[in-house]
Design a protein around this nucleic acid. Structure first.
Lengths: 117, 117
DNA sequence: CATCTATATGCCTTGACAGGCATATTCCAA
DNA sequence: TTGGAATATGCCTGTCAAGGCATATAGATG
């Protein structure tokens, strides 16, 4: 989860992942399409590998990398577990004020855009 | 998207976001619960703010931060647009070989675990 | 105004990381 | 075996970001 996010935080790595969504590719192809130097691609692929995001498959001379669904699925599930919250809306300021203090001093904090007035 | 990932890549910031999923909180509370120094929390919140992940709402002396659903939704959609792919499976090595070369020299690259032989 | 609280900012240091480049390694072919 | 293609690794450098700390700022209150 954390490692997944760190891995994807790097722009070029995100590009690599997006590229691999279309199917497995060897290192050279990736470097070619993204206009990166081969060594950097190898390094990025190492990070992605230790994050479990890709898997290598030797094919003769080349090493073909393919995406690994698990980490993306987990990220998806993480988001999914809170999906309903933002569909609802979680800017319930009152909730905090009530929960934190219990006092009744939360004087109408609805400066938001109330969808249903 | 990219900024969302970078923002969440930092462990403490991810914690802050997870914390705010339960509702808005003032800076001090966040620092308190996560056992972080207040200045660092303010800095993290600034990053989260410029990533659009949180929004501040001044309440008297304090500044209450609340989550902003949009970036998380976008991340969710990004994953969602590929969700079916990993449900299917995208380790179609043949696809690459055919697509890239068109040549007939892809000699039975199925070293994978063929689910349906 | 004096002061206290809550928060933001600035400065500094340190560590991590990405890119560039040379080189090692692996595999294939002749 | 020699050579060449594909890839990984090691070294170096520069940059950037995070933490620690002191301090500035804003609002409340007496």
């Amino acid at each position: 989860m954390q490692s997944t996010l760190s891995a994807l935080a790097e722009p070029n790595r995100l590009h690599i992942v997006e590229l691999l969504l279309d199917g497995p590719l060897p290192v050279g192809e990736i470097a070619d399409r993204l206009e990166l130097n081969q060594p950097q691609v190898s390094k990025h692929l190492r990070v992605l590998t230790s994050a479990g995001l890709v898997e290598v498959q030797p094919e003769a001379n080349r090493r073909i990398y393919k995406l690994q669904p698990k980490p993306l699925q987990e990220l998806d599930e993480w988001l999914g577990s809170y999906r309903r919250m933002w569909e609802d809306r979680f800017d319930r300021l009152d909730a905090y004020l009530l929960e934190l203090q219990g006092k009744a001093n939360h004087q109408n904090a609805s400066k938001q855009d109330p969808k249903q007035p």
